Amino acid sequence: MEPQRRPGGRSARVREAVLDATTTELAEHGYQGLNVDAVAQRAGVHKTTVYRRWRGPEGLVADALARAAEQPWPIPDTGTLTGDLRALTELVRQGFADPEAGSVATAFVAAGMQHPDAADALRGFYAARHDEAAAIVARAVARGELAPDVDADEIIRLAIAPLFHRLFITHERLTAEQARRAADVAATLATTVLST
């Protein structure tokens, strides 16, 4: 799906209202329960407006993800690679544990598994998050903790992937200890394997 042109004026207000309604509906009903008519009613717009611009639930999710990717992520800065990765994995854990934010994030992932447009948007969202999180690795390189040619994306994936495995593959409750352990393993691999 091509990125939406960023409109101004009334069109921008309609977009914000519709995307706010989309995230609320996702929080309450998940991706399977996302209904264009309900989104239109909640946003206070006619359903033909929603269908014309977003085509259906997958278009709503894709644009909601595009908007989310534009919102900055509070990247931790603790002074060490291990501390930063621990804070990052805890940030992810808390996000998914939050009843509203976690429901929306889960719905985004579910949509990405079911529709190509949503999958493209989900990849774009996480690419933006990885770009932001790369600051953790850049600081570690500057402090001499990591080799300059280390793969920042790989380190972030190593820290976050075990969390997503528990959340979406085995459907386990994710604890703070498990999030901390994933960060520690990623930090160890980054310093002993990826930086050699």
Rank of each mutant, 00 (worst) to 15 (best):
V39I: 06
A128D: 10
H115E: 10
A62Y: 03
P7R: 15
E16N: 13
A12M: 05
A147R: 14
A176H: 06
G33F: 08
F168M: 12
Q114D: 01
F96M: 06
R123L: 14
V14K: 01
L85W: 03
A142C: 11
P72Y: 07
A182H: 07
W73R: 15
E90C: 05
T48N: 12
Y126I: 09
G8E: 12
A190N: 08
D20V: 08
D84L: 09
R157P: 09
A64P: 01
Q32R: 12
T78E: 05
F125T: 03
T191C: 10
N35I: 10
A38W: 12
E90I: 02
R173D: 13
W73Q: 15
Q114A: 12
P3H: 11
A142L: 14
A111N: 01
H165Q: 08
F164D: 04
I169L: 13
H171S: 09
Q41G: 11
I155P: 03
E58N: 14
R143H: 07
G144R: 06
E90Q: 09
T175S: 14
A12K: 11
E70Q: 15
M1L: 13
A107F: 02
T22H: 02
A190S: 07
R181N: 13
D98K: 01
E58M: 09
M1S: 10
E172M: 09
A62D: 01
T188C: 10
A152L: 08
A105C: 01
T106D: 05
